[in-house]
């Protein structure tokens, strides 16, 4: 059974100039032990997806659909119920470690925060737990380092602290939003290795635009384009044999695979084409791609693709 089953999730933002749809009819499930990457480019809605599962969207967001976690719909859970889930059952490694940490609290206090909220750990036991977490993430001299403030750490170290915070209460599901963005090559490789080992037996939803990060960490990958999932499948197969023209274009535009750009640009939310949303940029578009909106269909073993060519 799925740990988290999302059905028909749509998110719209109310703004002064009207309603802007950001995510459209997303169906998505993640089973216990799976590590699923959601990849896509800026503005495709991937962060909004993570935030809607955490119920952390601003008040002008209109969410429809359902997200069943352990049999109950977290999109309809009360704020009090959500507080029991957030951090304890579903935890998030937020984007951008420089802003995600509170600059005026020591990192030890920040890691201890969710432990204090959700467990009976107090006093010495709490300190032992924080030290254990820091040690498990390869932070040396944890006793000394837990007294420090975020600005005293490098980007790679701050990322580790964010991971420690997320893992503190041993959650069922970890959502990681761009855990490697802004890190240098060497630190990125290190962080990836670390994430790989700590996420080995966990369930992970990885949100990223970095193909390398997705391929290193995820068992399955979903490709998001203009608010829709356009392709889904086991990471290995999907990267080796991409089916959707967008996925193919994305892979071909990476420097080590030929550097062939996709022409044009992603449509802005609210200005998506009528038919296939990728049609205007697609090199293999057919006549009906302009008018017919394709649905996400099963294709072979465990793969799904939203493209009329495979109908």
């Amino acid at each position: 059974m799925s740990l988290l089953a999302i059905a028909d999730l749509s998110v719209q933002f109310e703004s002064r100039s009207g309603t802007v749809p950001v995510l459209d009819h997303i169906d998505f499930a993640i089973n216990t032990g799976e590590r699923v990457a959601l990849i896509g480019e800026s503005g495709c809605g991937k962060t909004v997806f993570g935030m809607s599962v955490m119920r952390l969207l601003p008040s002008n967001a209109r969410i429809t659909g359902s997200a069943l976690y352990a049999g109950r719909d977290i999109l309809r859970a009360s704020e009090r119920e959500m507080q029991q889930i957030r951090g304890k059952k579903i935890a998030m490694i937020s984007q951008n470690s420089a802003f995600a940490l509170n600059p005026v609290l020591t990192v030890g206090d920040q890691i201890a925060e969710s432990l204090t909220l959700h467990t009976s750990c107090r006093g010495e036991g709490l300190e032992r737990e924080v030290i254990r977490l820091l040690t498990s993430l390869g932070i040396e001299r944890p006793k000394e380092n837990m007294q420090k403030y975020p600005h005293e750490f490098s980007g790679g170290m701050r990322e580790r602290i964010l991971i420690a915070m997320a893992l503190a209460c041993n959650p069922d599901l970890v959502i990681a939003d761009e855990p490697t963005s802004g890190l240098d090559a060497l630190v990125k490789a290190q962080t990836l290795r670390l994430l790989k080992s700590v996420m080995q037996d966990r369930t992970l939803l990885l949100i990223t635009h970095d193909l390398g990060t997705a391929s290193a960490l995820a068992s399955h990958t979903a490709v998001l384009y203009a608010g829709e999932i356009v392709e889904y499948g086991p990471t290995h197969e999907l990267f080796r044999h991409p089916m959707h023209p967008y996925t193919q274009g994305l892979l071909a535009s990476s420097p080590s695979a030929g550097f062939h750009p996709i022409p044009g640009m992603s449509p802005a939310p609210g200005q998506v084409p009528h038919g296939c949303r990728f049609c205007p940029r697609c090199s293999s578009a057919m006549d009906r791609c302009n008018s017919t909106h394709p649905s996400l269909k099963k294709s072979g073993n465990n793969r799904q693709v939203r493209c009329l060519r495979y109908d």
């Binding site: 090559a185 060497l186 990125k188 490789a189 990836l192 970095d210 193909l211 390398g212 990060t213 391929s215 290193a216 290995h236 990267f239 080796r240 990476s254 080590s256 695979a257």
Partner: peptide, 17 residues
């Protein structure tokens, strides 16, 4: 050499093909 190795590691999925 370390830089190159790190770059290769995060792009493992290329090359093989």
């Amino acid at each position: 050499i370390r830089l190159l190795e790190a770059a290769r590691e995060s792009e493992e999925w290329f090359g093989k093909d």
